[in-house]
């Protein structure tokens, strides 16, 4: 009932997971014996490893506009390279912070007697969504640079708003005959 691609995909996924288990198993054992008992779910521990005003400038176009105004190709090239590096470091730090949040959560809930499957699944999905966003940001910064990523984000936001508007219009149009029918009944 399963074809060759499915079988190979299933087997490869299993091998990959088992390899991760083999490599992480010994690392986890070492970690257990060496780690200190740090407080978990510390709300004071911020997400933000960089100053806020600094983060706000990574994707903002102002600096790029200024550098472009100098008409120096060397400076523009240097700026793009440096800004891309800073943006990538920021994405890496942010994804590490998100992973830490989830690790702290799983360290407590794995022993929990009253764990709720649906709540936990929602959290895992939210975590997955965030990690996908970080991965996409990483790829977008690598390929297009942080300045264009902001453009992409704005475009995606506008697109989602247009989709929401279209969905709303569709619902309104679809509801009309019912209303018409209800009136004539």
């Amino acid at each position: 009932m399963i074809g060759i691609p499915t079988a190979v995909l299933l087997g490869s996924a299993l091998f990959l997971l088992l390899l991760l288990l083999a490599t992480r198993g010994s690392a986890a054992a070492r970690e257990i014996s060496s780690r200190l008992d740090v407080p978990l779910l510390d709300d004071e521990a911020g997400l933000d490893p960089c100053p806020r005003e600094f983060v706000a400038r990574i994707f903002a176009p102002d600096d790029w506009e200024f550098v472009r105004g100098t008409k120096s190709r060397e400076l523009q090239k240097l700026f793009r390279r440096e800004r891309r590096l800073v943006a990538l470091v920021w994405v890496h730090q942010t994804s590490t912070a998100i992973r830490r949040i989830m690790r702290e959560h799983t360290e407590i809930t794995r022993r929990s007697h009253d764990l709720r499957f649906t709540t936990e699944t929602k959290l895992v999905l939210l975590y997955g969504e965030l990690m996908v966003i970080c991965g996409m940001l990483f790829l977008a910064i690598q390929s297009a640079g942080p300045q264009r990523v902001r453009g992409l984000a704005v475009y995606a936001d506008a697109l989602s708003q247009r989709l929401a508007q279209a969905q709303h219009d569709f619902k309104t149009v679809a509801a009309r005959p019912e209303l018409h029918g209800a009136g004539s009944a």
């Binding site: 997400l47 706000a56 994707f59 942010t94 965030l130 940001l137 990523v149 902001r150």
Partner: peptide, 14 residues
């Protein structure tokens, strides 16, 4: 996690 999501959105859309 919601804070993290809005943090990323704020930074990219700033």
């Amino acid at each position: 996690l919601h804070d993290a999501r809005s943090y990323v959105a704020r930074a990219v859309g700033s």
